[in-house]
């Protein structure tokens, strides 16, 4: 019997206002899509097209950027390439047109995998710990509760990078530099305050009577939490998870500072993909396009929950 707190405008807006508002939304959406579209297009350009001036909107698409993204290549003489026999695959052929041969896979997949492990791992941890902490803060009598909540929030009062040097030194000392575990812990720590605060709001909105009813009906507190509270927190958890994932996924500065080899994530790796004569822009764009996908997919999957979650309960059914 939750009360709807949805706010309706006092008077129904007229047709013209609606069209105007709709038009503005569409224009805004298009404008904010331009960089995305540009990145996606650039991924299919040839290196000369990608840096052509004036910029080319119409061009002949090629998979070169993607092939370069995933492979290492070396330049060879035409005679040597001739001696290899006909190309085995379409990407062999593509590379040979530029007098190159593929020498092996690039490091991109490894970096991408690191991003996935670290991004989702730290998101899971931040949301998991955040849910438990939020529940405790909302339901239990905790000494110095308000102070604790304030301390937790205060970790957000400066940009995390402000503590980069202590963390760098600490990580070196602890052997956490360039490890996935180290980065997961760091991102979890940064996201935890956001997650506790957001989720506490969602727990606060769930009346205690639900749990009390379950406890009277013979369930333990933990069972009541799992069966009654968690399902009603779904929207909040989804929204929180997306915020955490977006931060962890896009984080650049710490990743650059603390990872260089085996634990490096995609953000510090993609912008420095070198091709012939400098940055390989199509490969960079291709990498960026692929980098955007997981967050897009995650967001689309959780879309329904998210709409309810991000409005912070304002449109709860």
């Amino acid at each position: 019997m939750s009360v709807s707190t949805k706010a309706y405008s006092v008077s129904e807006s007229g047709k013209r206002t609606k069209w105007l508002a709709g038009g503005m939304v569409v224009v805004y959406a298009l404008v904010s899509m331009i960089p995305l579209v540009w990145i996606v297009l650039t991924g299919f350009k040839s290196p000369p097209d990608s840096i052509a001036y004036p910029p080319k909107v119409v061009f002949e698409p090629t998979m070169e950027g993607y092939v370069n993204l995933f492979t290492s290549r070396s330049r060879q003489t035409p005679e040597y390439i001739e001696s290899l026999g006909p190309p085995q695959t379409w990407y062999d052929a593509l590379v040979r047109e530029r007098n190159m041969v593929i020498t092996g896979p690039s490091r991109f997949l490894g970096r991408y995998w690191n991003s996935i492990v670290i991004g989702f791992g730290s998101t899971f941890l931040a949301v998991f710990l955040g849910t438990l902490a939020a529940y405790a803060f909302s339901r239990f009598r905790i000494p110095l509760k308000d102070d604790l909540l304030f301390f937790i929030l205060s970790t957000r009062m400066m940009p995390p990078i402000a503590v980069a040097i202590p963390i760098f030194l600490m990580y070196r000392e602890l052997g956490l530099s360039d490890t996935a575990l180290g980065i997961i812990l760091l991102y979890t720590a940064v996201n935890l305050s956001l997650s506790v605060w957001l989720l506490k709001g969602f727990v606060d909105e769930i009346p205690r009577e639900y749990e009390e009813a379950a406890v009277i009906d013979g369930y333990s507190r933990l069972q009541a939490f799992v069966k009654v509270v968690l399902p009603q927190m779904r929207a909040g958890i989804a929204a929180t998870a997306i915020f955490c994932l977006i931060f962890a996924w896009n984080e650049y500065a710490f990743a650059l500072l603390l990872t260089s080899g085996q634990a490096q994530t995609a953000p510090p790796f993609i912008p420095i993909i070198i091709g012939e004569g400098g940055l390989d822009w199509p490969a960079v764009a291709a990498g960026t396009t692929l980098f955007l996908l997981p967050v897009v997919i995650f967001t689309v999957l959780l879309r329904d929950q998210l709409l309810r979650g991000i409005t912070f309960g304002a449109v709860r059914k």
Binding site: E209, E212, I216, Q232
Partner: peptide
């Protein structure tokens, strides 16, 4: 849980 009572709340009791 051990007392075996049933409670009808004024509101909010349906999941």
């Amino acid at each position: 849980a051990e007392r075996d009572v049933a409670f009808v709340f004024q509101q909010y009791s349906l999941y």
